[in-house]
Amino acid sequence: MGIRLKVKNAEMGKELTLELSPDETIEDVINSAAEYWNKDSGAYIIRRGKQILKGGMKISELGILNDDVVELIPDPEGG
């Protein structure tokens, strides 16, 4: 049984529920959400409350509980 994580997209207002295994990483979460929403996975950061979650962090290391909510924040680049 995996861990359910809710991923809120700050620029779409939508919320995705993912089922994760403890070995999966925040990068996996961003990649899955970006693919689902047809976004550039390299153009987002993810936060839980005030904490910015780094891409290499494993779900098991973060103490994530079922139905915790994280938020995707855009990291745009202008030129």
Binding site: R4, L5, K14, E15, L16, S21, D28, V29
Partner: peptide, 12 residues
């Protein structure tokens, strides 16, 4: 390892 599985998507 399989990628995270999408269970649902909600939109207000």
């Amino acid at each position: 390892m399989s990628p995270p599985r999408v269970l649902s998507c909600t939109e207000p």
